[in-house]
Amino acid sequence: MPLEGAAFSYRHSMVSMTEMSTQYEVGMINQDFVSESTQLDHIQMFGHGVFETMRVFEWDIPLLYYHMRRVNEHSKKIYIQTDSRDLRERIHNFLSSIRQTHSGSGILRLSVMSSGTLGGYRIDKTSEPTYTISYRTLPAEFLNMPSNGIKMRVCDYRLPSNPVLSGMKHLNRLDQILARAEWDDQFDDGIMLDQNELVVETTFGNIFFLSSSGWVTPLINQCGIEGVMRSLLIKKIMPALSESVAIRKVKLYEIKNCSEWFVCNAVRGIMPVSSLFPDLSWTIGEKTKKLRRELSNLYPCYI
């Protein structure tokens, strides 16, 4: 009988006796004591790492190239060295090992974390990273997304500015957690603004809206995540359809006054918006439908 989830953890770590003296000697993960100091990584203490959430379809990851490019680029920015070929091999071996017990349509999460500390906040830039790979069958709610669009609100929480980490999908997701805690099940997602009241993203995706001069997506240069699906739409899907897209600062009133808009991410694809609390509504626009068809033609998992 298929299990609900699976996870492997990979570690390659060499620690000298000098370095060992600066590390904790014992700790607890959940209810289990651990005595190996290298198990108490920066990930558990400081969130030092990045992650990717990938759609799996018939045991293939359609956007693997884009995920690998991003995880390698962002890892290096925070002094974690990765290798694309090695990561691909780990993912391939992991999926091969669970084929007999799981459905081939699901969500795979890859986390790449620092495993080297020299005490306090000082890191060992030469240490090999720690990897975790986990998988779950595609949840029913992903397959049953409302056919008439998703319901949105504007989050009260404001994203802080951090140009160095802007665009990066690092492991510290407190901003999204605090924003998502503002509602229960009344809405599907929420728009996140920055300290200057500019639109940045939603709690789980990027935004595109149709203006009088073409598609627009918010500039991600002070905060927010540059999503894999966002990049795919900008660089491949929209050019294929001769659709222009502007990347610029966006005010909330522009979205409120637009003719159609959607939220996107690498797991769910393009999600048209039907309403914005308290009193705005949209029908799914023809240009959004056109983008969804093109995406589905290239990648059938995004139906």
Rank of each mutant, 00 (worst) to 15 (best):
T203F: 12
M152N: 05
H102W: 07
T53N: 02
F51M: 05
T38G: 02
L165H: 05
F262D: 02
P2F: 15
Q23L: 13
A246Y: 08
S75Y: 08
E73P: 01
R136E: 15
G214H: 10
Q195L: 10
C301P: 00
M14C: 10
F262G: 00
T132I: 09
V267D: 03
T217A: 04
K249E: 13
L64R: 03
G120C: 14
S274E: 09
V71A: 04
L87E: 05
L118K: 12
D175A: 11
S9M: 14
W59A: 01
V245L: 15
A140M: 14
F208S: 00
P139Q: 15
E254N: 06
Y135R: 02
S296K: 14
H42T: 02
L108A: 02
R122E: 09
S259F: 09
M113D: 02
E201W: 05
F277D: 14
R173W: 07
S9R: 13
R88F: 07
M145K: 14
K235G: 14
G269T: 02
T53W: 01
K289M: 09
I247S: 03
P218F: 06
N144F: 09
F208A: 00
Q23F: 07
Y121E: 10
N297G: 06
Y299I: 09
D41M: 06
M54K: 03
K249Y: 13
V273F: 08
V228E: 06
R173Y: 14
S111L: 03
I225Y: 11
S161E: 09
D86W: 15
A140S: 13
W183E: 07
T53A: 00
L63Y: 07
S21E: 13
T38I: 05
G227C: 09
V263K: 05
F142N: 07
L40P: 00
M271T: 01
M14R: 11
Q81D: 14
R99L: 01
R55N: 03
